[in-house]
Write a protein that binds this DNA or RNA. Structure first.
Lengths: 118, 118
DNA sequence: GCCATATTCAACCAAACGGTTGACGAAACC
DNA sequence: GGTTTCGTCAACCGTTTGGTTGAATATGGC
């Protein structure tokens, strides 16, 4: 499925930049306005705005305009496909899903949603 | 930790290209010589060789020269850091296994270890 | 209405990307 | 030892990237 491949292109590309990953980390803590996102970076607001556009097009964040402020929110679901893709490699030797479940169990001890519907 | 950040740059960048991901998928099945890796792609050997260099520098594969043949081997451990990084955003309620199965079916159509009920 | 604030747009730039080609070096074959 | 095979190197090319700047487009406050 080429569409999927293209989405992985975009996702991984979006993640392949330290500024963008830092932005995602910041948004992990709270939603933020564009200028607040930009504040800690030593680059222009326009540059950060571009980064946000890339993250947004990758689906990694969503942006909602309220008044003249545009709020940015993390959309971690977009990481799912990429994460699954990666895990398919790490766990492939034991590709059976049992192993994958065990992996999830050790990696997210508190999480028992494996096997449920999304 | 800037070194880690730089490694993530390199890893994600390496993954952000469909040719390189396809190469990784191929190496999932078996170690391969450079020319065999290149064979299915409609691009020059030199181009594939460059891709392999990028994957190698990212630690995603290793290359061992035996005679005049250079063998390429998947190194899935290198995905671990990137995978863990992504999971730090893992609000997503665990990768659900249905999605994982479907994903494997579309991404590795020839591989019948995915989708088994066992 | 006017000014300040928040954000994007447009044009530009240097550097990196993904590809090509042709030359090259090293190993293998006969 | 000449030739073929395997793979990389070097130079080049067009495109994309990540950044800049300055102008433009809202929106909100007075």
């Amino acid at each position: 499925m080429p569409a999927m491949s293209h989405r992985l292109d975009i996702t991984f590309h979006a993640l392949a930049d330290p500024t963008r990953r830092a932005i995602l980390s910041m948004l992990l803590e709270d939603d933020m306005a564009v200028s607040d996102v930009a504040e800690p970076f030593e680059m222009s607001l326009a540059a950060v705005s571009k980064h946000l556009g890339i993250l947004s097009r990758a689906g990694l964040i969503s942006q909602e305009r309220r008044g003249r402020v545009k709020w940015c929110q993390l959309e971690p679901d977009a990481l799912r496909d990429a994460s699954i893709w990666m895990q398919s490699f790490g766990q492939f030797e034991a590709v059976n899903l049992d192993a994958f479940e065990k992996f999830l169990a050790t990696e997210f001890p508190g999480n028992d949603t494996a096997g449920q519907d999304g």
